[in-house]
Amino acid sequence: MDQRRDNLAHWAVNQIQQLTGEDLTAELSVVSGDASFRRYFRLTGADSSWICVDAPPEKEDNPKFIAIARSWSEQGVNVPAVLGEDIAQGFMLLQDFGDKLLWPALHDGADHERVLALYKLAIDELINIQKLKAGELPVYDAALLRQEISLFTDWLCERQISLSLSADEHRLITDVTDILVDSALAQPQVVVHRDYHSRNLMLCAEGALGVIDFQDAVQGAVTYDLVSLLRDCYVRWPHEIVDELTAYYHEKASLAGVLDMPYDAFSRAFDLMGMQRHLKAAGIFARLNIRDGKAGYLADIPNTCVYLREVAGRYYEFSAFCQWLDERFLPAMEKGLS
């Protein structure tokens, strides 16, 4: 028996009755869960449907989600409208954007031009987000950037693949961390979605793009969300596609006043931001397995670490780190994940 689901269903039915006058049966269908503790369900009526969210208040910051949703919507970003909320129980009723994620549209028979067109649509919406007023969003500061990189050593190296690091190895990773953090903080600071990729973007009516899963938004480096989108941990695109789209972003963001960096400096910032994000993500995937029992994310660690090695190999200052990856980390990862 799932008491929270039953309670959510009855609460949502009551909310919809107050909003529309429609009487519904309290039956929910599963939409998805995600890497957090939130669960999403759909409640369907005669002509409409709604998304019902179970977000335990002791685990999730629901007031922040609601505040961001309403602020971004007022500023023109296409996020689901919050139609009802019960902060104490951790329930929300949201506008239903349907079930057409950007991810399958990119992969189910899309040709080169279609892939580019869809990503350009996502980049245009990203620039809209970056133009928003940051308001009371937390700052993506040095402490948070460093804490995220530590997930790689703590959860992936030490716990998941049993790779005990020496003092010299810790110093090496600290040196890499210093470079990555300095680069992130030197970039223009904008509104950052923080998980902006094709599984969190939806194709809505009339070709509009819907943005979901934005509750962890912060003020941070301008390249962060672009890395999330184009060097997505869950997929790998040919370099020429990524290069074309980064150039597209650079031109459009510069014209929009979001970015004021020469392309070479922007490209380096993009690369180094990707290293920070991929170190973080690889650690999070290990934590999801160990702490939360979500083993499916282990399959995404190798692709994430290949990104890390490829980009680090482009810069002389990471030569010692690349040697460590090749000689110590990657063999241990292959063994530890097999």
Rank of each mutant, 00 (worst) to 15 (best):
residue 199 R to K: 05
residue 281 A to P: 08
residue 325 L to D: 14
residue 207 G to R: 15
residue 302 P to M: 12
residue 60 E to N: 00
residue 39 R to M: 05
residue 5 R to E: 13
residue 104 P to G: 02
residue 83 L to E: 05
residue 85 E to G: 02
residue 39 R to F: 02
residue 104 P to H: 03
residue 18 Q to W: 06
residue 129 I to W: 00
residue 4 R to W: 10
residue 247 A to I: 09
residue 23 D to R: 10
residue 66 I to H: 04
residue 23 D to Y: 06
residue 140 Y to C: 02
residue 12 A to M: 08
residue 204 C to N: 13
residue 164 S to Y: 03
residue 236 R to Y: 02
residue 149 I to Y: 14
residue 187 Q to L: 08
residue 86 D to S: 06
residue 121 L to Q: 14
residue 334 E to A: 14
residue 15 Q to G: 07
residue 306 V to L: 05
residue 94 L to E: 07
residue 157 C to S: 11
residue 305 C to M: 15
residue 262 P to G: 01
residue 32 S to D: 01
residue 286 A to S: 15
residue 128 N to Y: 01
residue 166 S to W: 00
residue 217 A to F: 04
residue 11 W to T: 03
residue 8 L to S: 07
residue 246 T to D: 04
residue 267 S to E: 09
residue 12 A to N: 02
residue 61 D to I: 05
residue 49 S to W: 10
residue 164 S to F: 11
residue 289 N to E: 07
residue 267 S to I: 10
residue 129 I to N: 00
residue 303 N to L: 13
residue 22 E to F: 04
residue 151 L to H: 15
residue 125 E to L: 06
residue 295 A to L: 05
residue 26 A to W: 00
residue 189 Q to D: 06
residue 192 V to L: 03
residue 122 A to D: 06
residue 17 Q to N: 07
residue 196 Y to V: 01
residue 237 W to K: 02
residue 159 R to K: 11
